[in-house]
Design a protein around this nucleic acid. Sequence first.
DNA 1: CTAAATTGGTACGTGCCACGAACCAATTCA
DNA 2: TGAATTGGTTCGTGGCACGTACCAATTTAG
Lengths: 164, 164
Amino acid sequence: MNRPDIESGPDAGLDLVDALALLSFLVHDTLAELAGRHELSIVQTRLLGILRDREPTMNELGRLLGLDKSSISGLVDRAERRGLVTRTASAQDRRAVHVATTAAGRRLAAEVETAFSARIGELTAGLAPSDQARLIAYATAMIARSRSDQGDHPNLEPRLRAKT
Amino acid sequence: MNRPDIESGPDAGLDLVDALALLSFLVHDTLAELAGRHELSIVQTRLLGILRDREPTMNELGRLLGLDKSSISGLVDRAERRGLVTRTASAQDRRAVHVATTAAGRRLAAEVETAFSARIGELTAGLAPSDQARLIAYATAMIARSRSDQGDHPNLEPRLRAKT
DNA sequence: CTAAATTGGTACGTGCCACGAACCAATTCA
DNA sequence: TGAATTGGTTCGTGGCACGTACCAATTTAG
């Protein structure tokens, strides 16, 4: 609502909701595009990112990505088939399976992340450092708010990667 | 890169790339969740949003959504099967097909959009009006930059809706 | 200590989404 | 008029996500 009637250009007079939706799609599509150049989907990229510094079980992976365990099975299947990750039996629990990246997986993930950082850098190049800082603050505030609101949101991974 | 070593909380010390990625996922997931409550996917929601004030052909729809024509066929098929849109023959070009929403489609889209606006409102409630204005400005700047950069990006639809 | 729950994973089957290729019908161009 | 071009549909393929059913290992309870 409150859609201003005066609209000269395509992005003129965007309200907060529109602006955030557009920005979100832009970033999302950018990542999809960059990952796609390496035949990776966004989920696959996030998977590899998470595995950068961990070897979680399928179960933990599910929580980390906010996906059902059956989804994880397929996801890891496809990644394993491509030689990007490996399954290893757990020593503690003989039911459990740990997932780890291969060198190839790490390399791919790193390439995507580098390209993504570069692209985001281009998109924000017009903002002064102080404005970039403010943008970070706003985003952080919104993320924090979403966490406290319900808490049941899937774990979001900074830069598609780790999280304490 | 430049990942700060000092990290106390989950979102502490996010850099610009991480912050934007997280924010993007947050908004995206929020929309997916809200749309999902009405059995709608994000694409379906965008489709209905676009049709709010237009009756484009399949072809135009493809450009608007940045999808292949074959993808549009299936998309419209499923929506039509659910009674959310209708196909009508074009008067000018007997090959072409125009797509329009039904009342049910409009109602659904409106509900999702209302819920989405409300949720974004909650997430940004902590920001002062001046900060919200700045956030809009930053987002708008990034979007503008992405357009000028290559120009071949798929058409982004403000609030999943119209666009001049 | 064994029987009953619970937990960790996998294997379907289903459906959406996206693509490319093949194809048909209508339109436009030469 | 004949040859491209354009608008759409129909496959076939593959990723993604879910729920259900199922199996094996582990934990809990009696």
